[in-house]
Design a protein around this nucleic acid. Sequence first.
DNA 1: CTGAAAGCGCTAACAC
DNA 2: GTGTTAGCGCTTTCAG
Lengths: 340, 340
Amino acid sequence: MVTLKDIAGEAGVSAATVSNVVNGNISKVSKANIIRINKIIRDRQYIPNSSARTLAAKSSHIIAGILVGKSGRNMLKDPYNAEFFGEVVSAVQERGYYLMIRYVDSYEEVVHSLRSWNVDGAVFIGTTGTYIKKIREAVKIPLVFTDSYTGTENINNVGIDDFRGGVLAAEFFLRRGHRNLGFLGYVPLRREKNVVTERLDGFRSALLKQGIVMEEKHIFWADSYSPDHLAKVAAVLASGKSGISGLFVSADILAISLMEVLSKQGVRFPDDISLIGFDDLPIAANIRVPLSTIRQDVAGKARIAVDLLFRQIEKKNIPPENIMTELSLVERESVKVKNL
Amino acid sequence: MVTLKDIAGEAGVSAATVSNVVNGNISKVSKANIIRINKIIRDRQYIPNSSARTLAAKSSHIIAGILVGKSGRNMLKDPYNAEFFGEVVSAVQERGYYLMIRYVDSYEEVVHSLRSWNVDGAVFIGTTGTYIKKIREAVKIPLVFTDSYTGTENINNVGIDDFRGGVLAAEFFLRRGHRNLGFLGYVPLRREKNVVTERLDGFRSALLKQGIVMEEKHIFWADSYSPDHLAKVAAVLASGKSGISGLFVSADILAISLMEVLSKQGVRFPDDISLIGFDDLPIAANIRVPLSTIRQDVAGKARIAVDLLFRQIEKKNIPPENIMTELSLVERESVKVKNL
DNA sequence: CTGAAAGCGCTAACAC
DNA sequence: GTGTTAGCGCTTTCAG
């Protein structure tokens, strides 16, 4: 293994000089030396040791990508998470940094990984309020959260107006003549304000404006995307007794799973029941009955998150921001037109 | 920041002793000290510095997850890759290691990241022969490749029998009465033996056994999954002039994209054209017309890859293995029954 | 512009 | 069992 010292020896200069050319501090080194040292570096295939660098310079060039959720779960199987972090990988690499991916179950784990690796910054998915506050206090590096609703104003966040997403869905159902509506959401980790509750609230309040009260028993929760966990909702819906004609589902994958289960029980979409999803995943356009859904720009969110992060890594004292990205309703075939 | 030394000072012992308890070398420390030191560690919230550890111990506990492909592309957007590495993250964490994710475009980049971080092992996706040989020579840590066809016997690989996958597809088409068949594959990075060419060869040879020669011009290549790049194939297929009644597509996402494009041009599945995909992605069952496909166990491959990796990390001189995982044909609705 | 020297936080012989 | 002593490979003052 060839080290800085080896290069220095071969070039007949000190380690400090080599270090300077490696790090581009060219103002401190003579032109002749720069050229000579660079040549030796190339010839000898010198690769700086990142651990040594981190230790000495107190900056690792590592960015952590943290996914909060029940442990043991393959969180990248969720297309939203995969696209988001897939884009983060690109954005981080473009800046010469490295991405460490981490599934995390507890606050302690977050702090541990961030600190032990001397991470320069982190991007989160799936965090809720109290969580954020504790992390914020424990580590003082740049942090960007996504889709978080927390009291703390003092954090970076990139998200969407989930409440409005709910409103869009409700209005669309209303326009299409539906009045007996229901909601299906992925049950949140903690019972705090979050994307799902916001979407529900937006949905509910838009209905209320038209004097429609959504019944409590028409609000369903799934604690997994897997079809098995949808049995209860499915039973109610399939029986037809609920009278629900339209269901707003908090995520496309959930909606797709539900469709699968219900189709097997003979339910027809959108004739027996209409659906609106959320996210506009790439597949949403290609499923059995193409899904009407609330579209969000996942890759865009990822890019913005990383931009925010590096803005703070590069300059100190940039005030935290809460950025909202675009939202729109995409109409496809999963909502039936009813006569009013 | 609290360091090993701080703990040692507070406990009135040497750094070596603290290091021993941190690393679980309990045989070298008295019971009383272990308890006392552990308490201090907890109270002071001591978190070992991984860089220092790596530097001193020459082992980083970092595993690299390398995705080879054209740079700038969001490679985790591909559901196969996402599921695979999503599972790798879990498997790696369960063993107390960290996963660094890396998109890579060139052989040099691989060597650079692996060496600079003193990575303990790496799992690859998307590598071809020459690539592998060069990496194998440049770094001497445990490496596991996936789906690779290379002359070098001396590597760890987990894959499937892609040739047989092609055979399964051909036989199925044949059984259903199709004789005028075509193939659509994702164009490989390099023109070497690889999963796609194997699937094609298997397909072709099974047809040949029945005296059917697949025409060269019925073999199509797409260099992206995006619908725009499918225009050429789509034009041929939509015209109906090719006479192709069944198309074997090397990946489900490709098949799904193609369906989307062709549907817009009025092609009906499976009536106008039958399709068999590959992978059995979760969505394959839920698309417009549920896809018949060759199923493989992505998560299983990931688990096996990581097992292989750690077997070698833990013990030296384990001979490399080439493991093949299961394959099966899943029949759904995308293949029409034709009268012979 | 260049080099000497100290030290980042931890591990690993090797004595005691 | 425990402490002493060298580093691991690099960055960073600070003289010159």
